[in-house]
Amino acid sequence: VRQEELAAARAALHDLMTGKRVATVQKDGRRVEFTATSVSDLKKYIAELEVQTGM
């Protein structure tokens, strides 16, 4: 499950970095929206997932 969450989070980051205004991911069973202003929060979430998956 964590691998899927990590892939979704990375895709969301890619979307935001390429101009999409809002990206949505499932985080702990709930839907979370990230915007360009919350990229740093999304990067932290990705880092947490990488630690949890041993990457």
Rank of each mutant, 00 (worst) to 15 (best):
A36N: 08
K44R: 13
T24N: 06
K27P: 03
V32C: 07
M17T: 06
T37L: 11
Y45N: 01
E33Q: 09
E50V: 08
T37V: 09
S40D: 15
Q52A: 13
L16A: 01
R30P: 02
L42Q: 01
D41K: 08
A12P: 00
A23M: 02
H14F: 09
L13G: 00
Q3Y: 14
E48L: 10
E50A: 06
A9R: 01
Q26C: 15
I46Q: 00
R10V: 07
L6P: 00
K27M: 15
A12K: 01
E33D: 08
A9Y: 07
A8L: 12
R31I: 15
A12I: 03
E48C: 12
R2N: 10
T24P: 04
Q52G: 09
S38N: 15
A11S: 09
L6M: 05
E50G: 04
V22D: 04
E5I: 12
A9P: 00
V32G: 03
H14R: 12
G54V: 05
Q3P: 09
V1W: 13
L6F: 03
R10D: 01
G54F: 05
T24L: 07
L6H: 02
G29R: 03
T18Y: 07
K43G: 03
G54D: 11
D28T: 03
A11M: 11
D41G: 06
L6Q: 01
V51W: 13
A8N: 09
K20Q: 10
A12Y: 02
R2A: 15
A36I: 15
T18G: 09
A7D: 11
G54W: 04
E4W: 15
F34D: 01
Q52W: 09
Q26G: 05
G19W: 00
Q26I: 15
E48G: 05
V39Q: 04
E50I: 08
A36V: 12
S38D: 14
M55C: 11
A23R: 03
T24S: 12
F34I: 04
D41I: 09
T18Q: 09
Q3N: 11
A8F: 09
A12M: 03
M17V: 08
S38M: 15
D28M: 03
V51Q: 15
M17L: 13
T24V: 15
R30Q: 12
K27I: 15
T24H: 12
A11I: 08
L49H: 01
F34C: 04
T35V: 05
E4R: 15
T37D: 15
E5W: 08
Q3F: 14
K20T: 08
V51N: 13
L16K: 00
L13C: 04
A7Y: 10
K20Y: 04
D15Q: 13
T35E: 05
A8I: 11
A8W: 10
A11N: 09
G19S: 03
V51E: 14
T24E: 09
A36K: 10
E33Y: 12
Q26N: 12
L49F: 02
S40R: 08
E48S: 08
M17Q: 08
R2E: 10
D15K: 11
Q26F: 13
R21P: 14
E48F: 14
K20G: 08
L16H: 00
S38T: 14
E4T: 12
K43Q: 11
M17I: 06
R31E: 11
A11P: 00
Q52N: 11
A47D: 06
A36H: 12
A8R: 11
S40E: 15
V25Y: 01
H14M: 10
R30F: 10
R31M: 15
R10L: 11
A11V: 07
A9W: 04
E5Q: 12
L49Q: 01
S38R: 06
V39P: 01
A9C: 06
A47H: 14
T18R: 12
A36E: 08
K44H: 07
R21W: 06
V1I: 13
Q52P: 06
R10I: 10
E48M: 09
T18D: 08
A8K: 08
K44C: 09
T18E: 08
S38F: 04
D28S: 06
R31N: 12
Q3L: 13
E48V: 08
V32P: 02
L42K: 00
G29H: 04
A47I: 09
L6R: 01
V22T: 13
V25F: 03
M55S: 12
Y45A: 02
K20S: 11
T18P: 00
A12L: 04
D28I: 02
F34M: 03
K20H: 12
D15S: 09
V39S: 04
A36M: 15
H14E: 08
E5K: 07
A47L: 13
Y45E: 01
T24R: 05
L49P: 00
G54S: 11
V1R: 13
G29M: 03
D15Y: 05
G29K: 03
G54L: 07
A9I: 04
R21K: 13
A47Q: 11
R31V: 15
K43P: 00
D15R: 08
T37I: 09
D28L: 03
F34E: 01
V1Y: 13
V39R: 03
E4P: 07
E50R: 04
T18I: 08
G19K: 03
L13H: 02
H14S: 07
T37E: 15
A9T: 02
K44E: 09
A23C: 06
A11G: 06
K44V: 08
K43C: 09
E5M: 12
L16N: 00
A23V: 15
E48R: 07
E48H: 09
L49Y: 02
G54P: 04
G54Q: 10
K44T: 11
K43H: 07
M55E: 12
R30M: 14
D28H: 05
I46F: 00
E33F: 08
S40V: 10
S38H: 09
M55F: 06
K20E: 06
L6D: 00
Q3W: 14
T37R: 07
E33T: 09
A12S: 02
E48T: 07
A23H: 02
